[in-house]
């Protein structure tokens, strides 16, 4: 019997795989059949329906496409889940707000530099992606503490651009 914790849309589910062809979810045992067709295609038979599901897996973060809908989940074993809780408790000290690139693009302009005061909603940088200029605004009132990127830099989605405190 293996136990897992699956997160989906901010909800957590406990799943047990009993080794006899059942997955136990919310107290119900669901018989299933699964076949991995290729590196990113899997068949799951469940509730009298065969799902043909394309998927990507990055370290337990799954992206599925089910009937045209994207579904993202994160899976941990019970043990990993408990470790994660401990880590989170330690790391909950706040370090100001980071401006993270919401999309990949070119950093066209840095409007606020280190030491500048900013108001909530004020544009701090302009990011150009797919021919559109996008103003990225400050989520808080504060002072720019550090700027990590300079104008003209290519930026990946999720990269830190600057910190406001």
């Amino acid at each position: 019997m293996n136990s897992f914790v699956v997160s989906l849309n901010n909800k957590k589910f406990n799943v047990e795989i009993d080794g006899k062809g059942n997955a136990i979810l919310g107290g119900t045992a669901f018989p299933y059949q699964m076949k991995i067709i290729s590196g990113n295609l899997v068949l799951l038979k469940f509730n009298n329906k065969i799902y043909k599901i394309p998927y990507l897996n990055k370290n337990g973060n799954f992206k599925f496409l089910i009937d045209g809908f994207p579904v993202n989940t994160q899976v941990r074993t019970k043990l990993q889940e408990e470790l994660q809780k401990l880590i989170k408790e330690k790391a909950s000290k706040k370090k100001g707000d980071e401006i993270i690139a919401p999309m990949p693009g070119l950093l066209l302009k840095v409007l606020k530099n280190s030491g500048d005061e900013v108001k909530k909603g004020e544009a701090v940088v302009i990011l150009e992606a797919m021919k559109m200029e996008n103003e990225i605004r400050s989520p808080i009132d504060g002072t720019v503490k550090k700027v990590f990127k300079s104008e003209g830099a290519s930026i990946e989605k999720g990269e830190k651009i600057l910190i406001i405190q």
Partner: peptide, 14 residues
Amino acid sequence: TEEAAVILSALLKQ
């Protein structure tokens, strides 16, 4: 769909 995704996640992880 939610149930399918949850169960499949656990199976693939295993």
